[in-house]
Design a protein around this nucleic acid. Sequence first.
DNA 1: CTTTTATCTGAACGTATGTTCAGTTACGGT
DNA 2: ACCGTAACTGAACATACGTTCAGATAAAAG
Lengths: 195, 195
Amino acid sequence: MARTQGSHSGITGPKIREAALRLFAQQGYAAVSMRQIAKEVGVQAGALYNYTPDKQSLLFNLMETHMVELQAAWDAVPRADSALERLRAFTGFHIRFHLERPDAVFIAYMELRNLTEENFTVIESLRRDYENGVEGILKEGVEQEVFRIPDTKIATLAVIAMLNGVNTWYRSEGRLSLDEVETVYWGMVQKAVSA
Amino acid sequence: MARTQGSHSGITGPKIREAALRLFAQQGYAAVSMRQIAKEVGVQAGALYNYTPDKQSLLFNLMETHMVELQAAWDAVPRADSALERLRAFTGFHIRFHLERPDAVFIAYMELRNLTEENFTVIESLRRDYENGVEGILKEGVEQEVFRIPDTKIATLAVIAMLNGVNTWYRSEGRLSLDEVETVYWGMVQKAVSA
DNA sequence: CTTTTATCTGAACGTATGTTCAGTTACGGT
DNA sequence: ACCGTAACTGAACATACGTTCAGATAAAAG
């Protein structure tokens, strides 16, 4: 047999990416085999190669898509009037965006070492772009003397690291609502950079 | 040939742990083979099994040692008088301890998913102990109204996440000295939890 | 010097890996 | 109704994996 009933090209591609995303996040890129992904999709391993040239491209594709979507989503957030308001908007955005995609976030941070050198360069560049956006807000706030931080680069990384931490513990059935989490974190971020 | 010249048991064991630590951190547990570790030590793969029952134990041993040492080192830091001073001491301690062992830190945070269920439980418990120590400081500060934070558990995780971020960017040849880094982070931590 | 023992080699075990490809099937277009 | 082709199978490829073990060797013990 070949080409099982009801199989359409438009459905297998996404299914592969979804399965790879979940499995890579759960077990790690190196620990997941192409056969494992194929099984999850309901297909033989060879069929995957109609959708990706190799395993590495599959990983890179997932990470690049995530980073591009992240940047696009942030660009789509209306630009607030003050640096303080922009930082608040960023805090909320970052938390929510990351909590909606725990697997992609996990992969984007943990599987960098499994990327080819060229692929790594691309992803790193996308990450730097995103970080620079945040640093821009901080710099502006420092100039206007609404923020006081000795080093905007470090502060940027510190804020992002702090916010990323949410993904390690937040559970939607948990004690706090998303709004509460956002409020708590905004309180800390705001104070941490305040003048 | 067997038992090459000058080989002593006291030297191969540590060499294996060092090689495994470095390789696991660089490439990930699943991506590193026993033969690769053996090559780094200058020995055949089979010889590793005189020092570890299997690959999993090697990983677990590294992680457990790291967590135990972390706790012991923090316990050895003299207890400061006020909650504020204790938090400052913790900030400095945590940054320095982690920067001295980037590989072990990386593994302890990234390879949890490659642990057996029982092994995972042990490591998680050790981590919780460490976190609880920090939360104790925050709780005390809140009671004495020197800190104001809506949720000490979240604040604990946020502070630790922020501090852990140092390891992703700090280079000893870089722009800032260790003391400067410590000062900058302490400034942010202090403000973030301040009343 | 002789014996014991810790340490390591080298080969082998069964299994799994990423990837390729000739062949097969079911769908889309005519 | 027929064909062309996109989509998939199933087997095969070379290579690598974790682990075991009989045998070899150098150091330690007597």
